[in-house]
């Protein structure tokens, strides 16, 4: 149970609630028994199908009934239908589960059922050419992209929706250029810098575009550093931006880039004295620089890290022990 306020009811109020729920409970239990019995008897009739609709409306988390519903479709209904009718059934499934998803956007089983629907759209048998044959599929998958965008507008951190989005992008018959995802995450980030889900997605999309050679890594990174710096100045206490910055710098950056970023963060720290994220990031990048220098320079950097870590121990006492272990490592 998440985020439901505790309220104390009097004994009378509880009894009254039970009484009100009595009819609902009897109906629910009878329907459950009926369906589980029909399932055991391999009843794949349209009657049974309609009953699963009723039960899932009351309880969309009843996974066994979702399974049964799919079995009825596969074994009882689809074998006697033309492809067009199957397509209509699937569209109806998607329409019905949309209502369930709106009120229960975090129920795994509903997302799961939609995936099954998408994967079971038939080809159009009357069409000629691949594109026409796939028309039903591409139309439905395209519409799902709009569905998922609506859900991400309602809750931009819903990880089910983000996963579903990645699933659609990877599997649709009508793929859009991956680079459009950059624009999408930009709009999400501009709406709210704290949306780490969007920053995360962006890091994955860029990685893929760079690996495939569709975008130039060095050029993109310069633009990204500008965007991140802007976000840092807007809210230097937002950890999403600092985590993304760490990804952007990466693990094998040149000393030149590290020094440049260190200077930029130091400038921000001048304005935001005692900002924990500035100091913590400075330690991280300076420690990376440590492995690239030796002699006096190394001594100096090491002493700076130690001094910054000591400041962090006071500023951020919850994580004191972590900073202590880092001092020991120096």
């Amino acid at each position: 149970m998440h985020g439901v306020k505790r309220v104390r009811h009097t004994r009378e109020a509880l009894e009254a609630k039970k009484l009100r729920e009595q009819a609902k409970l009897t109906d629910y239990l009878a329907l459950t028994d009926d369906l589980l019995h029909r399932k055991q008897e391999n009843d794949y009739s349209l009657d049974a199908f309609k009953l699963t609709t009723r039960l899932l409306q009351v309880n969309p988390e009843f996974y066994t009934i979702w399974n049964y519903r799919r079995q009825i479709l596969i074994k009882g209904i689809f074998p006697e239908k033309q492809p067009r009718e199957i397509y209509e059934y699937i569209n109806e499934e998607l329409g019905n589960t949309m209502a369930a998803l709106k009120s229960h956007p975090k129920v795994y089983w509903i997302w799961n059922h939609r995936r099954w629907c998408l994967e079971n759209i038939p080809n159009n048998p009357d069409a000629d050419g691949l594109e026409a044959v796939n028309k039903w599929k591409s139309a439905t998958w395209d519409r799902e992209m709009m569905v998922v965008e609506k859900l991400l507008n309602a809750d931009a951190r819903n990880f089910h929706a983000w996963s579903y989005r990645r699933y659609i992008l990877a599997n649709t018959t009508n793929p859009r250029p991956e680079v459009t995802e950059i624009a999408y995450t930009t709009s999400k980030i501009e709406a709210n810098f704290s949306n780490f889900s969007a920053w995360h997605h962006r890091s994955k999309v860029y990685s893929s575009l760079w690996t495939s050679g569709k975008l130039d890594e060095a050029k993109c990174k310069e633009d990204e550093f500008d965007l991140v710096q802007n976000a840092m100045y807007t809210d230097p206490n937002d950890q999403s931006v600092w985590i993304y910055h760490r990804w952007l710098v990466g693990t094998d950056s040149s000393a030149e880039l590290l020094n440049r970023e260190v200077r930029a963060i130091e400038e921000l720290l001048d304005q935001e004295s005692n900002n924990k994220w500035c100091i913590e990031s400075l330690v991280h990048y300076k420690r990376m620089l440590l492995s690239k220098v030796d002699g006096d320079e190394r001594e100096r950097l090491s002493a700076e890290c130690k001094q910054l870590l000591e400041r962090l121990q006071t500023l951020d006492p919850c994580r004191r022990e972590r900073y202590a272990s880092m001092i020991k490592q120096l």
Binding site: F159, H200, K204, I243, W247
Partner: peptide
Amino acid sequence: NFDGGFGNTIGAES
């Protein structure tokens, strides 16, 4: 993921 965490499938947020 790059942050050291893990997601529920490949590509998912930590």
